[in-house]
Deep mutational scan, measured.
Amino acid sequence: PDDEWKERLREAEEKNNWKLFEELARKAGVSEEKIEEWKRRWS
């Protein structure tokens, strides 16, 4: 299951679909801290 969400995150990233990325990350149990960090790195 871990690989599956990583794959989906990669797809979201490729499409630059931040909303989807964020949603998937939350569902995968990624901390808000980590998500914010990704946001900063991404923008």
Score class of each variant (00 low, 15 high):
2 D>T: 12
30 V>R: 01
19 K>Y: 09
37 E>G: 02
16 N>R: 13
39 K>V: 04
11 E>H: 07
30 V>K: 01
21 F>L: 06
12 A>F: 11
11 E>D: 12
15 K>H: 11
8 R>D: 04
6 K>W: 15
16 N>M: 10
14 E>D: 08
37 E>I: 03
9 L>E: 04
41 R>H: 11
9 L>M: 12
10 R>H: 08
42 W>G: 02
9 L>V: 05
5 W>K: 03
1 P>T: 12
39 K>H: 09
37 E>V: 02
17 N>Q: 08
26 R>E: 01
23 E>V: 05
34 K>W: 14
16 N>L: 09
24 L>D: 02
29 G>W: 00
13 E>M: 15
24 L>Q: 04
15 K>L: 12
3 D>H: 09
29 G>P: 00
25 A>T: 01
22 E>F: 12
29 G>E: 01
4 E>V: 12
22 E>L: 12
21 F>G: 00
40 R>Q: 12
36 E>K: 07
43 S>F: 15
1 P>C: 15
33 E>V: 07
10 R>W: 10
7 E>A: 11
36 E>R: 09
39 K>L: 09
40 R>V: 07
5 W>G: 02
1 P>R: 10
20 L>G: 06
28 A>L: 13
27 K>P: 00
8 R>V: 13
39 K>C: 10
41 R>G: 07
43 S>N: 12
9 L>Q: 03
26 R>M: 03
7 E>D: 11
8 R>E: 07
21 F>N: 00
37 E>A: 05
7 E>N: 11
34 K>M: 15
43 S>G: 14
32 E>F: 04
9 L>N: 03
32 E>K: 07
19 K>W: 08
1 P>Q: 12
12 A>T: 03
22 E>Q: 04
12 A>D: 03
3 D>M: 09
28 A>I: 07
34 K>N: 06
16 N>P: 02
43 S>Q: 14
39 K>F: 09
42 W>E: 01
40 R>L: 10
26 R>S: 02
26 R>Y: 02
13 E>Y: 15
14 E>M: 14
3 D>E: 13
31 S>Q: 04
12 A>R: 02
17 N>S: 07
28 A>K: 05
23 E>D: 10
31 S>I: 02
18 W>T: 01
18 W>G: 01
4 E>Y: 15
1 P>F: 14
4 E>K: 09
27 K>S: 11
16 N>Q: 11
24 L>H: 04
36 E>D: 09
28 A>N: 06
4 E>R: 09
13 E>F: 15
10 R>S: 06
30 V>P: 00
33 E>N: 06
3 D>N: 10
16 N>S: 07
17 N>D: 13
32 E>C: 14
25 A>N: 00
28 A>S: 06
15 K>S: 14
27 K>F: 08
15 K>G: 11
1 P>I: 14
14 E>N: 10
8 R>S: 07
21 F>M: 04
13 E>I: 15
25 A>M: 12
41 R>Y: 12
7 E>F: 05
25 A>Y: 02
30 V>Y: 15
37 E>D: 08
15 K>Q: 14
8 R>L: 15
35 I>Q: 00
29 G>D: 01
10 R>D: 05
9 L>R: 04
10 R>F: 07
13 E>G: 15
4 E>H: 11
35 I>F: 02
12 A>W: 08
19 K>R: 12
20 L>R: 08
17 N>P: 03
11 E>K: 06
2 D>E: 10
13 E>A: 15
36 E>F: 06
2 D>W: 14
22 E>A: 08
18 W>D: 00
18 W>Q: 01
36 E>S: 07
19 K>I: 09
42 W>H: 03
17 N>G: 07
35 I>R: 00
21 F>K: 00
23 E>T: 08
37 E>S: 03
13 E>T: 13
3 D>W: 12
38 W>H: 04
17 N>C: 15
34 K>T: 14
3 D>Q: 12
28 A>R: 06
5 W>Y: 05
7 E>H: 09
34 K>P: 00
40 R>T: 09
8 R>K: 12
24 L>M: 10
8 R>Q: 11
42 W>A: 02
24 L>C: 14
16 N>E: 06
6 K>L: 15
38 W>E: 03
26 R>W: 01
23 E>Y: 13
22 E>N: 02
38 W>I: 08
26 R>F: 03
38 W>K: 01
30 V>F: 15
23 E>Q: 08
7 E>Q: 13
6 K>Q: 13
18 W>E: 00
31 S>H: 03
3 D>I: 09
14 E>P: 04
8 R>W: 13
26 R>Q: 03
28 A>V: 05
29 G>I: 00
2 D>P: 12
3 D>V: 08
8 R>P: 05
10 R>P: 03
1 P>N: 10
15 K>T: 14
15 K>P: 03
5 W>C: 14
43 S>W: 15
3 D>P: 10
20 L>Y: 08
38 W>V: 04
6 K>S: 12
31 S>K: 04
12 A>S: 05
12 A>K: 04
13 E>S: 15
21 F>H: 01
11 E>N: 06
32 E>A: 09
14 E>Q: 12
20 L>D: 10
9 L>D: 04
4 E>G: 10
7 E>I: 09
41 R>Q: 14
14 E>H: 12
32 E>D: 09
21 F>V: 06
12 A>V: 05
35 I>M: 03
42 W>P: 01
22 E>S: 05
25 A>Q: 01
20 L>F: 09
31 S>N: 05
2 D>N: 10
12 A>L: 10
4 E>F: 14
6 K>R: 13
28 A>W: 10
8 R>I: 14
11 E>S: 07
42 W>I: 03
3 D>Y: 10
18 W>V: 02
23 E>M: 10
3 D>K: 10
6 K>E: 14
3 D>S: 11
36 E>N: 08
37 E>N: 03
34 K>H: 06
41 R>A: 13
3 D>G: 09
31 S>T: 07
26 R>D: 00
12 A>Y: 10
6 K>D: 11
33 E>I: 05
40 R>D: 06
43 S>A: 14
20 L>Q: 08
16 N>H: 14
2 D>H: 09
26 R>K: 05
28 A>P: 00
43 S>V: 11
8 R>A: 14
29 G>V: 00
15 K>V: 08
26 R>I: 05
36 E>A: 12
17 N>H: 07
35 I>H: 00
19 K>T: 12
11 E>G: 05
8 R>F: 13
7 E>R: 11
12 A>H: 05
35 I>G: 00
13 E>L: 15
38 W>M: 10
42 W>Q: 02
19 K>D: 12
33 E>P: 03
31 S>V: 02
27 K>A: 15
33 E>W: 06
17 N>A: 07
20 L>S: 05
33 E>K: 08
30 V>W: 15
37 E>Y: 07
40 R>H: 08
40 R>S: 11
2 D>V: 10
18 W>F: 04
26 R>A: 02
42 W>D: 01
5 W>N: 04
27 K>Y: 07
32 E>M: 06
16 N>D: 08
6 K>Y: 15
27 K>N: 09
35 I>P: 00
15 K>N: 14
1 P>S: 12
25 A>D: 00
7 E>L: 09
35 I>W: 02
17 N>K: 06
24 L>I: 14
42 W>R: 02
39 K>P: 00
38 W>F: 11
35 I>T: 00
40 R>E: 07
5 W>V: 04
41 R>W: 15
31 S>A: 07
28 A>H: 07
19 K>S: 11
7 E>G: 07
15 K>Y: 07
39 K>I: 09
32 E>G: 03
39 K>A: 04
35 I>K: 00
2 D>F: 13
13 E>W: 15
22 E>K: 03
6 K>G: 11
1 P>W: 14
23 E>C: 15
11 E>Y: 05
28 A>F: 13
29 G>K: 02
37 E>L: 03
10 R>K: 13
23 E>F: 12
16 N>C: 15
42 W>V: 02
30 V>Q: 02
21 F>T: 01
13 E>K: 15
14 E>R: 13
30 V>H: 04
42 W>K: 02
32 E>W: 08
24 L>W: 15
43 S>C: 14
19 K>N: 11
35 I>C: 01
11 E>R: 07
23 E>A: 10
20 L>T: 06
30 V>E: 01
25 A>G: 01
33 E>Y: 06
34 K>A: 11
9 L>F: 13
38 W>R: 01
4 E>S: 09
29 G>R: 01
10 R>A: 08
1 P>V: 13
24 L>G: 02
6 K>A: 14
39 K>N: 02
24 L>V: 08
23 E>S: 07
24 L>R: 04
37 E>K: 03
2 D>M: 10
17 N>M: 10
19 K>V: 11
31 S>F: 01
10 R>I: 08
39 K>D: 00
24 L>S: 03
42 W>N: 02
2 D>G: 11
43 S>Y: 14
18 W>N: 00
24 L>P: 01
35 I>Y: 02
41 R>K: 12
21 F>A: 03
4 E>D: 12
14 E>A: 13
21 F>D: 00
33 E>Q: 09
27 K>H: 08
12 A>P: 02
18 W>M: 04
40 R>Y: 07
8 R>T: 08
